[in-house]
Design a protein around this nucleic acid. Sequence first.
DNA 1: TCTTTATGGATAATAGTTATCTTTTAGTAA
DNA 2: TTACTAAAAGATAACTATTATCCATAAAGA
Lengths: 151, 151
Amino acid sequence: MALNESKTSADRFQQMLDKLKSLDFRITPQRLAVLRILAASEDHPSAEQIFEKVRIEFPTTSLATIYKTIVLLKGLNEVLELGFPDGCNRYDGNRPFPHPHVICTGCGKIMDAELKSLDGLKEEIHKKTGFRIQHHRLDFFGLCQECQETM
Amino acid sequence: MALNESKTSADRFQQMLDKLKSLDFRITPQRLAVLRILAASEDHPSAEQIFEKVRIEFPTTSLATIYKTIVLLKGLNEVLELGFPDGCNRYDGNRPFPHPHVICTGCGKIMDAELKSLDGLKEEIHKKTGFRIQHHRLDFFGLCQECQETM
DNA sequence: TCTTTATGGATAATAGTTATCTTTTAGTAA
DNA sequence: TTACTAAAAGATAACTATTATCCATAAAGA
C-alpha cells in the first residue's frame, strides 16, 4: 500500500491509539470515542458534529473535551485541521497530511482530492521565493455535480 | 501589459474609484482613504492595520467603517480576502483574484506568488470530481530566507 | 485498594467580525 | 447657496467558535 493511501477505519483507529499509548497519554472512553469517529468519518466533521456523535454514547461529555482531544491529536499530527475564517473548522482523521480539497459552495460538502503535480509546485515556489516550504493548503471551491443540477 | 500583471498604485486606486462611481456608491473621504491604502499596500494588511492608517488622516474613523468598506469592495471583486481561522484576515487590493501566497511561519510575512500550472490543476480537478470550479485558495507555509538565517 | 496526577466537565473569557441604531453628510435639485 | 433625503459614518452591543480556568473525577501504576 502506498504511503498516502487511505487505510481502513480500524487501521486508523489503532494507529491513533498506539500513538497516544506510546506517548503515555491516558486512554479515556471520551478519547476513544473521538478517535473512533475521526477514523470512521469520510466527511470532514466539525467539532460540533463530533461532539454530537460522542454524546450519543456518552451524554455527559463536554464540548471542551472534544476540543482538547482535537488539539492533542493535531499536535501529534494525527488529525488535519481545515480551518475556515467563518469559524467552522473541519477535521480529517484519515489523511492527517496536507492534501487538496474540493469544497461545494452550494451544499458545503468537502471532498478529498489528489493531484500528482503538487510536489513540483512546492519546488517551483521554493526556487522563486527562497522559502523553505513546510506545508500547504489547497482548496478548490465550486459546485458539485448534484448542486449543478439543482441550480 | 498582461491581464494579471500588477498595476501602479494610482492605477488600482482609480480602477476601484471608477467602480464605486459607476455603481453610484457615495465617495466619502473614509472610502477614499481605504482605497488608497489598499491600492498602495504590498503587504496584505489586516483590517486593524488599515484602520490605523486611516486614523492618521481621519482620527474619528470607526473600525466598523473599515469593515463596511471592505465588505463592499469584496462584493465588487475589488479586494481579495485572505481569511485565516485564527481570525486575522488579510486583504489584497492589488490582485483581487485568487492567486498563490507564500506565508512565513516565522515572521508572518505574506507574499504573492505565481504558478504557471494552476489552470491545469483546475482542469484536472474538474475531470476527477465533476465539480464546476469557481475559485480556489492556495497557501504555502514555510520559512522565508531571513527567518531561515535566524532560526 | 490507594495514591497521584492527568483528564473531564462546566463555564467564563477571548477576539475578530457583524448587526443595530442614531447622527452626519454626500449628492442633487431648486 | 440652501434644502432635502437617503446613504454612509460612528459608537457600541451582539455574535460565535475556540480557549482558558478551575475544580471534580477517574486512569494507571504500586
